[in-house]
Simulated assay, not measured.
Amino acid sequence: MSAIHHEDRSALNRGAALASIATAIFLVALKTWATWRTGSTAMLGSLADSALDLVASLATLIGVWIAAMPADEDHRFGHGKAEALAAIFQVMLIALSATGIAYRAIDRLMNGAQTQAAEEGIAVSLIAIAVTLALITWQRIVIARTNSVAIKTDNVHYQSDLLLNMAVIAALVIDQYLGFSEADPLFGLAIAAWLAWGAWRGASEAVDHLMDKEWPEERRDAFLEVLGRHPDIRGVHDLRTRTSGMHDFVQFHMAVDPKLTVVEAHDLMDEVEARLANEFPGVEVLIHPDPEGLVDEEGVAAEELLPDRAEDA
Rank of each mutant, 00 (worst) to 15 (best):
Val256Glu: 09
Asp49Phe: 01
Asp161His: 13
Gln251Trp: 01
Leu12Glu: 04
Trp36Gln: 07
Gln139Met: 08
Ala24Arg: 12
Leu186Gly: 06
Asp49Asn: 13
Ala134Phe: 14
His209Glu: 13
Thr23Ile: 01
Asp238Tyr: 03
Glu284Phe: 09
Gly188Phe: 10
Leu54Phe: 15
Ala206Pro: 06
Ala118Thr: 13
Ile106His: 00
Ala29Asp: 00
Glu217Met: 14
Phe252Arg: 05
Ile169Phe: 01
Leu286Asn: 04
Gly202Thr: 08
Val149Cys: 01
Ile122Ser: 06
Leu210Glu: 10
Ile191Thr: 03
Leu44Lys: 05
Ala190Val: 05
Asp238Gln: 11
Ile21Val: 15
Ser204His: 12
Leu54Asp: 05
Gly188Val: 10
Leu54Thr: 09
Thr35Ile: 08
Ala190Glu: 00
Gln139Glu: 14
Ala150Pro: 09
Ala150Ile: 12
Arg145Glu: 06
Ala203Thr: 02
His75Asn: 06
Ala34Lys: 08
Arg14Val: 02
Arg234Cys: 09
Ala313Lys: 13
Phe187Thr: 07
Asn278Val: 11
Ala56Thr: 14
Asn13Val: 01
Lys31Gln: 12
Asp238Trp: 01
Ala193Glu: 00
Ala144Trp: 13
Ala16Gln: 06
Thr60Glu: 00
His237Gly: 05
Pro289Glu: 10
His5Pro: 02
Thr137Ile: 09
Thr132Glu: 04
Ala68His: 10
Ala206Phe: 07
Ser40Arg: 07
Leu162Tyr: 04
Leu133His: 02
Leu163Asp: 00
Arg220Trp: 01
Ile88Met: 15
Ala302Asp: 13
Ala3Glu: 04
Leu189Trp: 05
Arg242Val: 02
Val272Tyr: 11
Asp74Gln: 13
Ala48Cys: 14
Leu85Glu: 00
Asp107Phe: 02
Ser204Val: 10
Asp232Trp: 14
Met254Ala: 15
Ala193Tyr: 03
Ile127Gly: 01
Phe280His: 11
Arg145Cys: 07
Val207His: 02
Ser97His: 06
Asp248Phe: 02
Val64Lys: 02
Thr38Asn: 05
Ala123Tyr: 07
Pro185Met: 11
Ser20Phe: 03
Asp221Pro: 01
Asp232Leu: 15
Tyr177Trp: 15
Ala192Met: 08
Leu162Lys: 12
Leu172Val: 05
Glu214Ala: 15
Glu303Cys: 04
Leu260Gln: 13
Asp270Cys: 06
Ala310Gln: 15
Gln139Val: 07
Asn278Phe: 09
Met110His: 05
Val91Thr: 14
Thr261Ala: 08
Asp267Ala: 11
Tyr177Gly: 00
Leu162Cys: 03
His5Ile: 00
Tyr158Ile: 02
Ala193Ser: 06
Leu135Met: 09
Gly245Val: 11
Leu224Asp: 09
Ala274Tyr: 12
Glu119Phe: 11
Gly80Thr: 07
Phe180Cys: 04
Ser148Phe: 11
Ala117Asn: 15
Asp296Cys: 07
Val285Ala: 10
Thr38Cys: 04
Arg9His: 04
Val124Trp: 06
His253Gly: 03
Ala82His: 06
Asp208Gln: 14
Ala17Ser: 12
Ala128Tyr: 10
Ser10Gly: 00
Leu286Lys: 03
Arg14Ser: 00
Thr261Cys: 08
Leu306Ile: 11
Val207Trp: 09
Thr153Asn: 12
